[in-house]
Amino acid sequence: MRPDPRHVSPEAKNVRRKIETLSSTLNLPTVRRALGVLEGEHSSSRLGGNNDPMSTRDYTFEDEARLIDWKASAKLGHPMVIDRERLVTSRVHLLIDNGLEMEGRTISGETAREVAGNAMCMFAALSARRHDRISLVFGDSLNIIRKPFKGGLAQFEQAIDNAVGAEKRHPRNFEALLTYARTLTDKGSLVVIATDEHALSGDHMRSLRLIAAMHPLMLIDVATLNPFRKVPFGQITDGIDGRRIPAFLIGRQSADSVDAHRRYLTAQLQEHLKACGATLIRATSSEDMFSQFIHLVSVTLKQTSYASFEPSSAVAGGMA
């Protein structure tokens, strides 16, 4: 469902600024830990991990204290670091449901497509800092478009905004997007899939399980407006044919029933994803998505006894 007339919420732009601030203030070791604990890791030829030693060098302010080699440091009289083969996912696949249905609005006034786009900017910002190879994929009923990405966050944001701003839309084909994910051959690469809560069904669980068996998987599930609850902006209409919701259907009882059913489906989805080692982020807005991502990483880092994940005060200040 979407409100009429169409309007653009400033929240998406506000969260985009937070993402840019976060990516520029976090040091590289923290970025590596933040992504590593979410994705699972495998061997590569990159530096900064716990496998075979590769070289010894002077300690710098960006290095983690746990990497200091105390014997070499005592011998030379100053801190030394041993670079080791880093356990890392060197490729990140960001898959976005680009169907017409993603024009549905959220409680913040953003479209589900905007929230999904900002979620992908969150992952792209950290992955680009880690110099991962990023593939951006858009899928609908007409085609699957893959855009190999090279560049910084600004270029990625432009690619997202161009897709979000496209005028011509086609219905979704979420099964085709999952089929594409199942064809990815680089085992161990991070896969992030963004859609709204109406795309998923029991028929998709097997595909998600197969993807999670091959890749660290994160699912962004955008919650759209409850069509039977009053909203502070516009008139709710059907997102496909533009028909308005009859006024006599809008009320607390109907709205509460829809909310309860959605909570039940979300709990089932979360349980299923957890069982196959995947992670769910269900967001009602870009702000909600950003806060949940920060909380998820913070909790995960603390549970794995890593250093705390603490954004700068400028970023944290906006995360009420």
Results as ranks from 00 to 15, higher is better:
R6G: 13
H7E: 15
H7K: 12
H7N: 12
V8G: 10
V8C: 05
V8Y: 15
V8H: 15
V8P: 02
V8E: 15
V8N: 13
S9M: 05
S9C: 08
S9Y: 06
S9P: 04
S9W: 09
S9G: 06
P10L: 11
E11D: 05
A12T: 12
A12G: 08
K13F: 12
N14Y: 10
N14I: 00
V15P: 01
V15H: 04
R16W: 10
R17M: 03
K18R: 10
K18G: 12
I19K: 08
I19H: 11
E20A: 10
E20K: 07
T21I: 04
T21Y: 03
T21F: 04
L22K: 07
L22V: 09
L22Y: 07
L22F: 09
S23L: 00
S23H: 01
S23T: 08
S24E: 11
T25Q: 13
T25A: 09
L26N: 05
N27M: 06
L28K: 12
P29F: 05
P29L: 11
P29A: 12
P29M: 11
T30V: 11
T30N: 03
V31C: 12
R32A: 10
R32V: 08
R32W: 02
R33L: 11
A34P: 01
A34T: 02
L38S: 05
L38F: 01
L38Q: 14
E39M: 04
E39R: 09
G40N: 08
G40T: 04
E41G: 04
H42F: 13
H42A: 09
H42D: 06
S44P: 05
S45G: 14
R46M: 10
R46D: 03
R46H: 14
L47T: 09
L47I: 03
G49V: 02
N51R: 15
D52A: 15
D52N: 10
D52T: 14
P53F: 12
M54Y: 04
S55F: 00
S55L: 01
S55Y: 03
T56E: 03
T56V: 13
T56M: 08
T56P: 00
R57N: 02
D58S: 14
D58L: 14
D58P: 10
D58T: 15
Y59E: 08
